[in-house]
Nucleic acid binder design. Sequence first.
DNA 1: GGCTGTTATGTTTACGTAAACATTTGATGG
DNA 2: CCATCAAATGTTTACGTAAACATAACAGCC
Lengths: 355, 355
Amino acid sequence: MDTAEGVADARDAGTRRRRGGRVPTASMADVARLAGVSSQTVSRVSNGYAGVTEETRQQVLAAMKELGYRPNSAARALKRGEFRTIGVITFSLATTGNVRTLEAIATSAASEGYAVTLLPVAVPTQDEVRGAFSRLEELAVDAVIVIMEVHLLDAATLKLPPHVQVVVVDSDAGDHYTVVDTDQAGGTRAAVRHLLDLGHDTVWHLGGPEGSFAAQRRTDAWRRTLAEAGRTPPPLVRGDWTAESGYRAGLELAARKECTAVFAANDQMALGLMRALHERDRRVPEDVSVIGFDDIAEAGSFLPPLTTVHQDFAEVGRLCVQAVLRKMRQDGPERGTTLVPTRLVTRASTAAPPR
Amino acid sequence: MDTAEGVADARDAGTRRRRGGRVPTASMADVARLAGVSSQTVSRVSNGYAGVTEETRQQVLAAMKELGYRPNSAARALKRGEFRTIGVITFSLATTGNVRTLEAIATSAASEGYAVTLLPVAVPTQDEVRGAFSRLEELAVDAVIVIMEVHLLDAATLKLPPHVQVVVVDSDAGDHYTVVDTDQAGGTRAAVRHLLDLGHDTVWHLGGPEGSFAAQRRTDAWRRTLAEAGRTPPPLVRGDWTAESGYRAGLELAARKECTAVFAANDQMALGLMRALHERDRRVPEDVSVIGFDDIAEAGSFLPPLTTVHQDFAEVGRLCVQAVLRKMRQDGPERGTTLVPTRLVTRASTAAPPR
DNA sequence: GGCTGTTATGTTTACGTAAACATTTGATGG
DNA sequence: CCATCAAATGTTTACGTAAACATAACAGCC
């Protein structure tokens, strides 16, 4: 027994072992010992502070390299009171927009030295969102960006941890949070005007699901633009963002001979719509013009290539990160909405109406 | 002066203030004080350990609630030596596969009580990947999943921090890491056989970019399957995964009258391919059958709806998390490749060859 | 009634870092 | 040649948590 213990002790003497059989990592103290300096000096080198001789610095760096030293982020976070991490809450990664925005956020955050932690919310209910926030509170996160359609985000009930800053994408919560969003209204206006300018009497609209703010804004702007031009809006047709729902709606619209121009609230639905029109022998764009929204990567390869409203997701993501960092730094309750402009991309799916 | 300081002191007396003007959060000590117990007891309650009277427990819980106590994850991580976080390194979120896998990983990880930190790598060079790993080392991460085409991942040069476990998706690095991947060969075989069974003499292949292992495997399996059936493989045509590249390849293939069946390495390229065929008056599937790979959400809405190989990304993600957790827990150098089966989804883009 | 064992709780300590404060060293100026 | 000061480096401490160890309280037993 004694022998066994002795052996164990001997083994542990040189390289200290953590519980759980983990491989030990070098700490500042280890580096300091090897370099023959105090751990504080190592800290200074590690953080690039002034007041260290070049000679000492080189010694420390050498020791770090030899031991493969990496600062322990947990200890750092504990000491500094910040994690250099941004949490992103998102309902689904099924839509191009969310994904592209997330990607841009991750890239922007990285360039600012921040990591991004992903917090998927399975079902977009108040409870689930609240659950995500609740988990978040004990998570290593300094700030939060919510990519979500969010009436779900009720400031009153949520009771966020006070130090967590929130920025929201795609919401009308501008009164309570900082919101960054694509200029839905501007994009819609451009799309609808494009069709009217081509000579169409009016423009039909294949809208997104009721729950979505983005969808609602596009629908509202569609109505407004038609009204401003003195046209009567035809009945609204709704989909749920999927190509499949666009197809179903398309079968309906194909039956309406008076329908010569459709503004679909996203490209996927436009895709399904065009398939339905094709099946019913309504040619695009000769008989019916179709315009989408988003400008997904494939839009130019649809049959025919789709005219659509290009969203600058990268910019949205960048602005989110900027906003969240600004809020963190100033600690101020900055609110309001920032809009990112869109651009109309004209391809082959729109043309003058048949005469 | 004295007055001002006095006021400041008075303000700070009750609620301690952190540097940087942060709002203070309650610590275990605060809860312990309020509940009239030791902080260790609070810890026990917080971690659900046995050996605490129900009465005491309730008191502590009440105190926690009153103070809005949340465990500090940095301190916890420091003490426990683990972050309960998995890092995901990914090159691009532009492909459906990567995104769907990421989503599944995030969901699985969450259900295991792990968070997911996203590490985007801008350019997929060795250096960049190494950079990501390097950043990773000082990041709050217990394990890493790489979603990437990775010759870039060279075990020898990388020198990963020894405690970080790695699982790789889409790679042939099975000798060095644990790899989870879709059964590319099986899916390809099913696709090619489907076309041969319909009566086509041979099957053309629109492959993915050279750099990609997934692409390479699909190409290899295509050749092998044809060889097994005693057919001569036609010349290989390459794209870069985008619909646009599929379109360009399609223009080429449309000129070959002997080409009656094409297996595209992904759905996007199949989309572009079909557009090119359509433009050149080659009907799908009457003149040319087209089959894709992935089964993206829109595939059923293409013109015509695309026959394709369905990948179970959710399963891939789930298995990745399982594997990484297993590795962490056993601390064993488990290696090898796990394959996730595919399923052929037959739609309208494939038919018997013209006679 | 003292001994043993169990259960509930308290105390001490360490995790790795970095701020705050302390000390040493060497240069400058009178 | 010593006082003064600045620069370089060292020492102490705290961040919040939880393991390890210590103690107290009480029940059961001979």
